[in-house]
Amino acid sequence: MKPAPFDYEAPTTVADALKLLGSHEDARPIAGGQSLVPMLAFRLARPSLLVDLNRIPSLSGIEEKGGVLRIGAMTRQAKVLASDVVKRHAPLLVQALENVGHPPTRARGTIGGSCAHADPAAELPSAMIALDATMVIAGSGGERRVRADDFFIGAFETALQPGEILVALELSKQQGVSAFLEVSARKGDFGIVTVAARVAVKDGRCIDAALVLGGIAERSVRCAEAERILKEQGATPKAIDAVLAALPLDAVTMDSRSASAAHRRRLIPELCRRAIEAALASQVTP
């Protein structure tokens, strides 16, 4: 399990990184390496050049400015998990991260690396979608911004074009309370089904809601109809029943030895109900 040979560069600016990525056909960026290095070890990934993003200071950090929280793509998951400002600004992100890996993988794994890897069972893509995050992408033509919901395209597939890198995530202040629940074989494993729920109630009315399922399909699935019902009917027990009846169970395509599609389908309503109730009961109000 030794990787196939590759070359290695560690640029210190985004511009240099982009130049290097453009210079080799099979060049590939490496962030925290928690997914890529195992793929190298199994020789499932065989880049000719690894462009290490760990030496680019501008890619790390958490900054709140004008109501927008900007998290550098190379910010370690452990830093985000421990961040008070993230906890205040986007508690759902912290709730999701509590389910991601283990302390040593979070110490090295990055927030952007996990998003760019886009494992269909990963927690962070669902959280980004539920938070309506903006993904900031740098390429040779400059920066562009993509909504999280448009960023995640399929299994290990994102809006990132060859030669581009994810530089930051931008989050508006989270609207409403939230919860992140999952069923997994062990704590820290990818979920069989994950649910990110966010509900904003004001004056008894539900003004905003997000319900995002992960682990069930090629990418996380936003439950648009269920969200609409929540917003129309409020987060009442009756509305929740209607929400559960409107979940996109047809979207389940993941069918594996570890969990059949049917099992995933029956977990979804149960987990969604628990997630909405947990969100509403949550003490963490942003």
């Binding site: 390496g33 290095v37 290490d52 760990n54 302390p103 040593p104 993988t105 110490a107 090295r108």
Partner: peptide
């Protein structure tokens, strides 16, 4: 330990 934090020695390249 990397700067005091536990990390995976097999998931970091020596050049890093």
């Amino acid at each position: 330990l990397l700067d005091g934090d536990a990390i995976r020695g097999c998931l970091m390249l020596a050049v890093q």
